[in-house]
Structures are given as C-alpha cells and as structure tokens.
Amino acid sequence: MHGCGNDFVLIDNISEKIKEVDFPAIAKNLCDRKKGIGADGIIFMDIDSTCDIKMNFYNSDGSRGEMCGNGVRCLARFAYHVLNLPKLNILTDAGIVKTERIDETKYKILLNNPSIEDYNCSINYKGVNYTGSYIELGEPGIPHFCLEFDFENTNIDELYKFAEFLRHNSKFPKGANINFFKLTGQNNVDELTYERGVEDFTLSCGTGTGCVAVSLFKNKLINSNTLNAKTPGGDLTIELEFKSNNIKNIYLIGETEIVFHGNY
C-alpha cells in the first residue's frame, strides 16, 4: 500500500504469528527494491489487549520506528478490510493513535502531540546558519527538523549532502527526519522529506507534515487551523484543534492506495 507515495508492505500478523525477533530481517529483505518487494517500510499488524490493534513498524533498513503517520493511515485501511473496523485505537511505540475512515480511500488520524519542541534550532552548514524547528511527536518521540528552504531550486547532489548532514547532526541524538518546506500561500506549502531509516528522500511524510504545520503555527506564519501540503507523492492536509490558543489535537488526512495483494 501507499499513502501519497510513502509505501509499505503490510502483514496481518494476527494470522501469520511471525516472531518479533524476525521482524528486522524480514523488513530488510522485503523492503529491498532490488531483491524484494520494495517499500519505505513494513508494518506487522498484531493484536493487543489495550487497543484494537498494535502497529509494529520497521524502516527499510531494518530499524524499528516509533510510528509513521502515512503508515498508520494505510494500516487503518488494511485493518478495515481484515477486521471491518471503521474506527480504531492503534497502539504504536510513540503512543496510541486514533483513526477514522472517511471514505473508501481517505483516512484521518490523530497524530501524537509534541513531547519535545525547539522552534529556534540553529545549525551551521558551510558557514551559513540555518534556523528551523526540532519537534518530536509522541513519547518516545518521532524526531523531525523542519526547515523553510528553497529545495526546488537547489542542485540535487547538494540537496542530498545537506539533508544527510542535517539528518546525522549531533544536535539530534536520535537522528532526525528532515522536512524541507516552502510556503506557496497563506496556508499552503510544498514539502520534501529526507527520512531517517530509509536514508533517502521519500514521496511524503505524514508526521513530518504535522510537524511543519505546528512549526508554522508556533512561528505565526499561518493564521488558519488547516495546512495543505503538496508533496511529490500527493496532497496531505493537517487540521489543528486549539484550546486556549494552544494546540490540542493534530489531525492528518490523506488518501491511501492498495497496490497489490500477494503471497511471499
């Protein structure tokens, strides 16, 4: 499946009962785009006594991820087909995520709120200081560094080097997903993400888009509760809910697509 081009292999582990110790190796094998199926990550759907289902999420390099916004949207649709549940509470390593089926392809999820926030994070690269926002969603948090940057007019080789430098920067002890964005209107952005664990640019990033929206609101660069993000893989929408002018809820909305079913 994919959510705006962010693609995943999904396995019904309620039926398959694969041992967790084997998850990393399976992730590396199946996500290999040359020798396997090919994906940004893999999701094992398991049962859990505290929630409707549990999400075991692994990146393509075999590392375990705290959570993945686009992955949760795909998992919600997958669970609807398997379990016929239009609304779910999904247990992830970053906390419980609530999901809702809007229609056959569109799903809405409640992202975890920020646990760590730095809206004035400055990093020096080749003698230039770049200031962005470091945000972790959930606890333990998914790390993101959001930077307003003209990525569309930057040489691709230099963009890779810059993204890799930021992703591994010592200011980020867990590493970070790098979310470049460019404002194209009052509540619209173009966005490009370099993902930790994939170690490459991906076609979209759900949690990253949520962090971009939070960063823009905190820095008073948007005046609406809605942000529309154009990514290389499609369009994502973030809706913010407020309480006493503070962010209470962050919703991610977007399309999901089933590419194929198969046996491996």
Score class of each variant (00 low, 15 high):
Asn6Val: 05
Phe8Met: 04
Val9Trp: 03
Leu10Met: 05
Asp12Thr: 03
Asn13Ile: 08
Asn13Thr: 07
Ser15Asp: 15
Ile18Ala: 08
Glu20Ile: 15
Glu20Asn: 14
Val21Arg: 14
Asp22Met: 12
Asp22His: 12
Phe23Gln: 11
Pro24Met: 06
Ile26Ala: 08
Arg33Ala: 10
Lys35Asn: 15
Lys35Asp: 15
Ala39Asn: 02
Asp40Ser: 05
Ile42Thr: 08
Ile43Lys: 01
Phe44Met: 10
Asp46Phe: 08
Asp48Lys: 06
Ser49Gln: 10
Ser49Trp: 08
Thr50Gly: 02
Cys51Ala: 15
Lys54Thr: 05
Met55Ile: 07
Asn59Ser: 04
Gly62Lys: 07
Gly62Pro: 11
Glu66Pro: 00
Met67Asn: 01
Gly69Gln: 00
Arg73Pro: 12
Arg73Val: 13
Arg73Cys: 13
Leu75Ile: 08
Ala76Gly: 07
Leu83Pro: 01
Leu85Pro: 09
Pro86Trp: 07
Thr92Leu: 00
Ala94Ser: 09
Val97Gln: 02
Val97Lys: 03
Thr99Ser: 15
Arg101Leu: 13
Arg101Trp: 09
Arg101Ser: 11
Ile102Asn: 10
Ile102Gln: 13
Thr105His: 11
Lys106Val: 15
Leu111Asn: 07
Asn120Asp: 14
Val128Met: 08
Tyr130Asp: 00
Tyr134Glu: 01
Tyr134Met: 04
Glu139Asp: 10
Glu139Cys: 08
Pro140Leu: 02
Pro140Tyr: 01
Gly141Phe: 00
Ile142Pro: 00
Pro143Cys: 04
Phe145Tyr: 15
Cys146Ile: 06
Cys146Met: 08
Glu148Asn: 12
Glu152Lys: 14
Asn153Arg: 11
Thr154Gln: 12
Asp157Glu: 14
Glu158Cys: 07
Phe162Pro: 11
Phe165Met: 07
His168Gly: 02
Asn169Met: 00
Lys171Val: 00
Phe172Ser: 05
Lys174Asp: 09
Gly175Ala: 01
Gly175Thr: 00
Gly175Leu: 01
Ala176Cys: 14
Asn177Arg: 01
Asn177Met: 03
Phe180Glu: 04
Phe181Gly: 09
Leu183Val: 14
Asn188Asp: 12
Val189Asn: 13
Val189Arg: 14
Asp190Val: 09
Glu191Val: 15
Tyr194Ala: 03
Tyr194Phe: 14
Glu195Thr: 02
Arg196Gln: 01
Leu203Trp: 01
Leu203Gln: 09
Cys205Gln: 00
Thr209His: 06
Thr209Gln: 06
Cys211Phe: 01
Val212Asp: 05
Ala213Gln: 06
Ala213Tyr: 04
Ala213Trp: 03
Val214His: 06
Ser215His: 10
Leu216Thr: 14
Lys218Ser: 04
Asn219Glu: 10
Asn219Thr: 13
Leu221Met: 15
Asn223Leu: 14
Ser224His: 10
Asn228Glu: 07
Lys230Gln: 13
Thr231Asn: 13
Gly234Ala: 06
Asp235Arg: 11
Asp235His: 10
Leu236Met: 11
Glu239Ile: 12
Asn245Lys: 12
Asn245Pro: 01
Asn246Trp: 03
Lys248Ser: 12
Asn249Met: 02
Asn249Thr: 04
Tyr251Ala: 08
Leu252Ala: 11
Thr256His: 11
Glu257Pro: 06
Ile258Trp: 09
Val259Thr: 10
Asn263Arg: 09
